[in-house]
Design a binder for these strands. Structure first.
Length: 294
DNA sequence: GGTAGACCTGGACGC
DNA sequence: GCGTCCAGGTCTACC
């Protein structure tokens, strides 16, 4: 259509785009997509403009490409988004130092594992996380797809692709409409969160700043209706706080096979298995190379 | 502070 | 074919 802007961003080494993309399932959720070796994302910028961002591995970081004639302000906004989505500045050196002594984490440093792909806004990640609970992964993919198609702003030139819905757009929907979109009982949670954000009653952006204690961030996340222990731990991981393990049925299975001979275990056993990792507990769990076949 | 029951939905499994 | 169970859990109502 119109022009393209291309620029590069440095990452704190070691960095691997491929490892970020594979860090968890988020890449399968719209508006993320994978295009060959590139990470694609349909972004909605501040003024409401929608554009596609393409990110590729570069020498010491990533090359960013955005369609359309972005002015300096828009370009700066995209830069901020990409830095956040890929956690380009994250320093994992203490984790890597400890991981060197652990055979089950041997590969993390060499493959630059540890960064988790995240959405540009915490709102989007909270909604997506709520949509992972008590369902299958294919269900999550379907629900996010439905939300984006139904309420996201279209990409000019390719209106089948859409940005993630804004809180305002979701707040202006109805619980019934969201339920009909396939969210089931979770529609109430998404609707309420969107309304809290729009009214200013809930400041998710504030949770991104790092000077709050992890306990306090966790308390605030848990106060979102629909966010329980698992979802809060998951979101804390995305925020770079690894003190809690997102214990789901899968985690129970893994720990049971690894250390308990397949006997049923509970949340406590999962936490205990990784307690020695302290503030790196969540990462050690997430990137653990399990010895038992899954 | 801890634990049954209910909850949208669709895919997997047993009969 | 149909019922049942359960999934990357959480809420609510009761102890």
């Amino acid at each position: 259509v119109d022009g393209q802007v291309k620029w590069t961003l440095a990452a704190r080494p070691p960095f691997s785009l491929r490892s970020v993309i594979r860090s968890h399932g988020w890449i399968d959720l719209r508006p993320f997509a994978q295009r060959d070796d590139a990470l694609a994302y349909v972004a909605r910028l501040d003024g409401g403009r929608v554009c596609e961002i393409l990110v590729r591995q570069a020498e010491n970081g990533v090359a960013v490409e955005a369609a359309g004639d972005l002015d300096a302000g828009a370009q700066a906004e995209v830069t901020g988004m990409v830095r956040w989505m890929l956690a380009l500045d994250r320093d994992l050196s203490p984790f890597y130092a400890r991981a060197r002594g652990e055979p089950h984490l041997r590969a993390v440093e060499a493959q630059a594992k540890g960064r988790l792909l995240r959405s540009p806004t915490l709102f989007e990640d909270v909604v997506k996380t709520i949509l992972t609970t008590n369902t299958t992964w294919s269900g999550t993919v379907r629900m996010v797809e439905s939300l984006v198609q139904g309420y996201g702003d279209p990409l000019p030139g390719d209106p089948d692709r859409r940005a993630f819905p804004t809180p305002a757009r979701l707040a202006s929907a109805s619980i019934e409409a969201l339920r009909a979109a396939g969210l089931g009982y979770r529609s109430r949670y998404v609707f309420q969160l969107a309304n809290e954000v729009v009214s200013g009653e809930r400041d998710l952006a504030a949770l991104r700043c790092s000077d709050l204690r992890t306990d306090e961030v966790r308390r605030r996340l848990r106060s979102i209706v629909g966010v329980g222990d698992y979802a809060a731990a998951s979101l804390l991981m995305l925020l770079g706080r690894y003190d809690f393990i997102p214990v789901d049925s899968w985690a129970l299975k893994l720990v049971s096979n690894e250390w308990h001979g397949g006997a049923p275990v509970g949340r406590d056993e999962v936490e205990a298995a990784f307690a020695q990792w302290g503030r790196w507990k969540g990462l050690a769990y997430w990137f653990w190379e399990w010895s038992a076949p899954q």
